[in-house]
Computed example of a mutant assay.
Amino acid sequence: MFIASLNYIQPLDKIEQYLEAHRAFLDKYYQRGVFLMSGRKEPRTGGIILIHAADLDEVNRIIAEDPFNREKVAEYTITEFLPSKTAVGLEKYLQI
């Protein structure tokens, strides 16, 4: 499991130019069951994506497709974690 933390490095008006394409990118990976949750940070300085992927290489390949990455309007910090406890209904994501 991975957390992608996006930090905007361009003004919000520049981010807005790529928001529709970014949302289409998100939808693609939600449909594949790779993205589990996402949303913007508050205050609006970036966003978070919770990713269910096999390894860091897969995450990096996916992030390379993000229009925010391609257009260099956001930077990404990727954190891997191994879920050892979950809420009811999320047990399939345990990695103990």
Rank of each mutant, 00 (worst) to 15 (best):
F81V: 06
E80P: 02
A74K: 03
P67Q: 04
Q10Y: 04
M1H: 08
F81G: 10
G33N: 08
Y8G: 00
N7V: 06
D66M: 07
H22L: 14
H22D: 12
Y18R: 04
K72C: 08
G39K: 11
E16A: 13
A53R: 05
E71D: 09
Y30K: 04
F25W: 14
R70K: 15
R32E: 15
T86A: 02
A21H: 06
F25T: 02
I15T: 00
Y18H: 13
A24H: 12
L56F: 04
E16D: 09
Y93M: 05
A87P: 02
T45F: 03
A21I: 03
K72Q: 14
R61N: 13
V34F: 05
G89I: 11
A24Q: 15
P43V: 13
K28V: 00
M1Q: 07
P83M: 15
F2E: 07
E71I: 06
G46H: 14
L94C: 13
M37N: 02
L12S: 03
F25M: 07
A21W: 01
F35D: 14
L6T: 07
E20P: 09
F81K: 05
R70F: 03
S84M: 06
G46P: 14
I63W: 01
P83L: 12
A24F: 10
K28E: 00
E91L: 13
A53T: 11
P83W: 12
G89Q: 13
F68Q: 04
H52R: 09
S5H: 13
D57K: 03
I9W: 04
I49F: 04
D66N: 10
A64R: 04
Q17G: 07
Y29W: 10
D13H: 03
H22K: 12
R32V: 05
E80M: 02
L6P: 02
E75T: 11
G39I: 07
H22E: 15
S5Y: 11
K28P: 02
M1S: 06
V34P: 05
M1E: 06
R40P: 01
I15G: 00
E42C: 11
F81A: 09
E75D: 14
A53L: 08
T45M: 06
L94T: 14
E58C: 06
G89D: 09
D66A: 12
L56K: 11
V59A: 10
I51Q: 02
T77K: 14
R44W: 03
S38Q: 05
V73R: 01
A21Q: 09
T86W: 05
I3Q: 00
R23P: 15
G89M: 09
K85Q: 08
H22R: 14
E58S: 10
I62E: 05
G39N: 13
T77L: 12
K92S: 07
T79V: 01
